[in-house]
Amino acid sequence: TYTWNTKEEAKQAFKELLKEKRVPSNASWEQAMKMIINDPRYSALAKLSEKKQAFNAYKVQTE
Rank of each mutant, 00 (worst) to 15 (best):
T1D: 15
T1Q: 15
T1S: 15
T1V: 11
Y2N: 15
Y2W: 11
Y2T: 12
Y2P: 15
Y2F: 13
Y2K: 15
Y2M: 15
T3E: 15
T3A: 09
T3V: 10
W4P: 14
W4V: 06
W4D: 14
N5C: 15
N5E: 15
N5A: 15
N5W: 08
N5S: 11
N5H: 09
N5K: 12
T6R: 01
T6N: 08
T6L: 04
T6F: 03
K7C: 10
K7N: 06
K7Q: 10
K7F: 09
K7W: 06
K7I: 12
E8P: 04
E8R: 07
E8L: 06
E8M: 06
E8W: 09
E9R: 01
A10I: 02
A10K: 08
A10Y: 02
A10L: 04
A10F: 03
A10S: 05
A10H: 03
A10P: 03
A10T: 03
K11E: 15
K11W: 15
K11G: 11
K11H: 15
K11R: 13
Q12L: 10
Q12A: 11
Q12W: 07
A13F: 04
A13H: 07
A13D: 05
F14E: 00
F14K: 00
F14N: 00
F14M: 02
F14Q: 00
K15S: 15
K15C: 15
K15R: 14
K15T: 15
E16Y: 05
E16R: 05
E16C: 11
E16M: 07
E16N: 10
L17W: 01
L17H: 00
L17V: 06
L17Y: 01
L17M: 11
L17N: 00
L17F: 01
L18K: 00
L18M: 07
L18A: 00
L18F: 03
L18R: 00
K19A: 14
E20L: 03
E20I: 04
E20H: 06
E20Q: 08
E20R: 03
E20G: 04
K21A: 08
K21Q: 07
K21N: 06
K21F: 08
K21E: 04
K21W: 05
R22G: 11
R22E: 09
R22M: 13
R22T: 06
R22Y: 09
V23N: 00
V23Y: 02
V23T: 03
V23E: 00
V23K: 04
V23H: 01
V23I: 09
V23F: 03
V23C: 04
P24F: 03
P24Y: 04
P24N: 04
P24A: 09
S25C: 13
S25V: 08
S25E: 06
S25L: 14
S25K: 15
S25H: 12
S25T: 12
S25Q: 13
N26V: 08
N26Y: 11
N26F: 09
N26D: 15
A27E: 04
A27I: 13
A27Q: 04
A27V: 11
A27H: 09
A27R: 02
A27Y: 10
S28P: 08
S28T: 12
S28K: 08
S28M: 07
S28W: 03
S28C: 10
S28R: 07
W29I: 02
W29K: 01
W29Q: 00
E30A: 11
E30D: 09
E30I: 09
E30L: 08
E30H: 11
Q31H: 08
Q31I: 12
A32S: 03
A32Q: 01
A32R: 00
A32H: 00
A32W: 02
A32M: 02
M33G: 03
M33E: 10
M33P: 00
K34P: 12
K34T: 11
K34R: 13
K34F: 10
M35P: 01
M35A: 07
M35E: 06
I36L: 05
I36E: 00
I36K: 00
I36R: 00
I37P: 01
I37K: 13
I37E: 12
I37W: 11
I37T: 07
I37G: 07
N38H: 11
N38A: 15
N38C: 13
D39R: 00
D39Y: 01
D39L: 01
D39W: 00
D39T: 00
D39G: 00
P40S: 05
P40K: 05
P40Y: 15
P40V: 12
P40N: 08
R41T: 03
R41E: 01
R41Y: 01
R41L: 02
R41C: 02
R41S: 02
R41W: 02
R41H: 02
Y42G: 02
Y42T: 01
Y42H: 02
Y42L: 02
Y42A: 04
Y42K: 01
Y42P: 00
S43M: 12
S43I: 08
S43Y: 13
S43K: 13
S43V: 09
A44M: 04
A44I: 04
A44H: 02
A44F: 04
A44T: 03
A44G: 04
L45H: 01
L45N: 01
L45G: 00
L45D: 01
L45I: 10
L45P: 02
A46W: 10
A46N: 07
A46K: 12
A46V: 13
A46E: 14
K47T: 14
K47C: 14
K47E: 14
K47F: 09
L48H: 05
L48T: 10
L48Q: 07
L48E: 14
S49A: 10
S49T: 11
S49K: 08
E50G: 03
E50V: 03
E50I: 03
K51D: 02
K51E: 02
K51I: 04
K51N: 02
K51R: 07
K51V: 04
K52R: 10
K52N: 04
K52C: 09
K52M: 11
Q53A: 13
Q53S: 11
Q53Y: 09
Q53N: 09
A54P: 01
F55H: 03
F55W: 10
F55V: 03
F55I: 02
F55S: 01
N56D: 13
N56Y: 14
N56P: 04
N56F: 11
N56G: 08
N56R: 10
A57M: 12
A57V: 10
A57G: 06
A57T: 12
Y58W: 10
Y58E: 04
Y58K: 01
Y58Q: 03
Y58R: 01
Y58I: 03
K59P: 03
K59D: 04
K59E: 04
K59V: 09
K59H: 06
V60Y: 09
V60E: 08
V60W: 10
Q61P: 05
Q61F: 13
Q61D: 13
Q61C: 14
Q61W: 13
T62C: 14
T62I: 10
T62N: 11
E63G: 09
E63P: 09
E63M: 09
